[in-house]
Design a protein around this nucleic acid. Structure first.
Lengths: 243, 243
DNA sequence: ACAAAAGTGTTTCATTTACACCCATGT
DNA sequence: ACATGGGTGTAAATGAAACACTTTTGT
């Protein structure tokens, strides 16, 4: 017997992945397609999500949804907002879909975002036809998912300035320039390399490895890692008022 | 005919109020009391909250809940987290209450906090027996409301450092020391008065009025106001990475 | 030898921190 | 006159911002 769904409550997941090579911050989306008599009713993308089961916490639902799509567990996740507008699933495109899927059209969704590495996800033969899209080149999106992604992105932008979550998006071994590129991708700004470099290297929790890049057709860069242990140890709450 | 409730979805409101005189950051709570045959089953406090109506957005529910309790509208509010643990309403104290109120015991609540001035709320003859409690001296609380308040408070602590929401808790005319006292109350820290004073007075959006305190039995202090217009005009996003 | 990205130092400016006494007013 | 909280200034230290060239490597 299947677990029982809560019919008017779902979790939607904005899965962020960073591709070090293309320097692109991406969002993982799944295909939504519906036709009747060769008549295409719905053809766009949506976030991955599912109803909450009766026995589950919201966090567990989010974890399950990610695992179902990618096979991954133990990824950084954050619940960032609930969306409950009564009209959020009532656009012209959404109605046939909802009818087909027997959704409750007044469904509240609790939205999470995940941070992971694009390279950790294998999409070949993905049963949801999942695909990565650069955050700035999103396809046509169903429901209110464009808004949800936008709010996740805003939260990420703020949060990456004050917490070391950036490293969740990078490989375990990275270069200083990787970090800079990622900040530039997320924030849409340019950063001075010398200042950034000095700042980062001076952090005790940024550890230079005995290793350099291999297989690059240029001067190979020094590799570093992030030590969460050291970060936690030296973390000090800062009460700087900047209004 | 009454609007139709969504039975498994509610909004709970953490109403923060600051009392300038006692320098106390308070939370507004309502009484929860139930007895049968002179047998007290439930006697504690809870947050104010209510089910979401079918036609309402979540924000509208929160606004309605606050208005119902205090008569106030147009107060600062923020949705900060959804709570959906399947066991969140199943403690020994909560069960008789839920039975009595015909709640769905698997109710998800979307939590908001409000910031307002204690003095704006009149509690005489309040039909919910509402009362203010200092954030550090909360009474026995029902459901998971202690956790909800704690999370609201954490969010407030972070947010007041980077956004001028502190002024939502103060009267329109305040002294520099009022602001300092409030920061100290919220953050639980001590601040150097000279440094704080200089910092604040140098902000263009902190405007010295042609007025001083009246009715105080000491040297009356200069009154100031906060100009949101000027704040918005000179606001600049800051991309300082502090990890 | 050349292309391409990695890596490096110094100066200026702004902000934060530390710190102790006099002042104005009401009683 | 006195008690009470209001109000003030300076110097040192830290952190951010601006800025251009050399080095290393693979091809």
């Amino acid at each position: 017997m299947n677990p029982e769904k809560i019919l008017n409550l779902s979790v939607d997941c904005v899965v962020f992945g960073y591709d070090v090579n293309t320097k692109s911050l991406n969002v993982l989306l799944i295909k939504r397609y519906l036709e009747t008599n060769n008549n295409v009713l719905v053809d766009d993308y949506v976030l991955t999500g599912y109803h909450v089961y009766k026995h589950e916490t919201l966090d567990e639902t989010a974890t399950r949804v990610l695992r179902e799509l990618t096979g991954l567990t133990n990824q950084y996740k954050k619940q960032f907002k609930a969306f409950g507008n009564p009209n959020r699933l009532t656009s012209e495109k959404d109605l046939p879909w909802i009818e087909n899927e027997k959704f409750n059209s007044r469904t509240i969704t609790v939205a999470y975002y995940f941070l992971l590495k694009t390279e950790d996800v294998s999409l070949t033969n993905n049963k949801y036809s999942a695909a990565w899209f650069p955050i700035n080149k999103l396809p046509d999106l169903g429901f209110d998912h464009k808004e949800i992604i936008q709010e996740a992105y805003e939260d990420l932008k703020v949060k990456c300035l004050s917490e070391p979550i950036i490293f969740k998006l990078l490989p375990d071994k990275f270069t200083i320039n990787d970090v800079q590129d990622l900040y530039e991708s997320i924030l849409g700004i340019e950063i001075d390399n010398r200042n950034f470099r000095r700042k980062l290297i001076n952090k005790k929790y940024i550890i230079a490895l005995d290793e350099k890049q291999v297989g690059v057709s240029k001067r190979p860069a020094q590799l570093y890692m992030f030590s969460k242990d050291i970060y936690d140890k030296i973390f000090e709450k800062n009460y700087l008022i900047s209004i």
